[in-house]
């Protein structure tokens, strides 16, 4: 098991191999992700019961929670990719870190916007500077910082290092987001889904939420693969295999 994982890790380090394997994986992730998200969203919006307190407005949870959860997972992946890049000097790792940043930023925006739309009818305000909302906004700024570094620094190597360092330092924000609702008193409620306890949500509401969460993760994979493949083609544009790939496409 360990040696298989180690081999996969080394293979993923090769741009050509990454390009080929992800072109085979992508359709699977795309279709499974689309199916799960569609089923989950339709189930959640049309068939799940309304909440006893919030009525129908709670249904935005089926977008809000997957986006918020994934934007944090994506940040951890970006930070780990940065660490691997810095320590083991693995180029592909930097590429993946770079491609995750705008995706994670979009997810953070979705989480913040859906949260504001949810907050207005339930709390009575779009925004409040409590610990959860503020730390989530900082997450968005961290993503933007990583993107800005790649746009501002010409040298690829320098940009990779600077972005990886920012991603690693910013990862301290992730536990702060997670525990913000426990460490401080906030307007945002504590977590519904935890790894250790039963979800505090009726099962007929919870199952569609799980489906949309898994669906979002699959979509995220497709998105990261697509952007990374793009980046690989650009960085490797002078190599033989990319040239032959492109000429094959041109002849088809």
């Amino acid at each position: 098991m360990w040696s298989a994982l180690k081999r996969l890790y080394h293979q993923l380090g090769s741009p050509k191999w990454f390009y080929e394997i992800t072109s085979r994986w992508s359709p699977w992730f795309l279709w499974i992700g689309t199916a799960l998200t569609l089923v989950g969203v339709i189930w959640g919006l049309a068939f799940a019961p309304a909440d006893y307190l919030q009525g129908n407005s709670f249904r935005i949870i089926y977008i809000h929670v997957p986006a918020a959860l994934l934007s944090q997972s994506a940040y951890i992946m970006m930070a780990v990719a940065g660490l691997v890049g810095l320590v083991w000097k693995m180029k592909m790792s930097f590429v993946v870190g770079k491609t995750i940043a705008p995706i994670g930023a979009s997810l953070a925006v979705i989480a913040l916007v859906t949260g504001a739309i949810w907050g207005k009818p339930t709390w009575g305000t779009w925004w409040v500077w409590d610990a959860r909302l503020t730390s989530m906004l900082i997450l968005l700024f961290l993503y933007m910082g990583v993107m800005a570094i790649y746009n501002a620094i010409e040298s690829e190597e320098m940009a990779n290092k600077a972005a990886a360092v920012l991603a690693l330092v910013g990862s301290i924000n992730i536990p702060i987001i997670k525990y913000s609702v426990e460490w401080w008193n906030t307007l945002h409620q504590p977590a519904t889904i935890t790894l250790t306890k039963k979800p505090t949500m009726a099962p007929e509401m919870f199952i569609p939420l799980v489906l949309t969460i898994i669906g979002f993760y699959c979509w995220f994979a497709v998105w990261v693969f697509a952007r990374t493949r793009n980046e690989i083609l650009w960085r490797e544009r002078r190599t033989k295999w990319v040239k032959s790939l492109l000429s094959m496409g041109a002849n088809r």
Binding site: Q54, Q189, T200
Partner: peptide, 10 residues
């Protein structure tokens, strides 16, 4: 402002 808790049920 109203707070709501983490429990959701029909």
């Amino acid at each position: 402002l109203a707070k709501h808790d983490e429990n959701y049920m029909p």
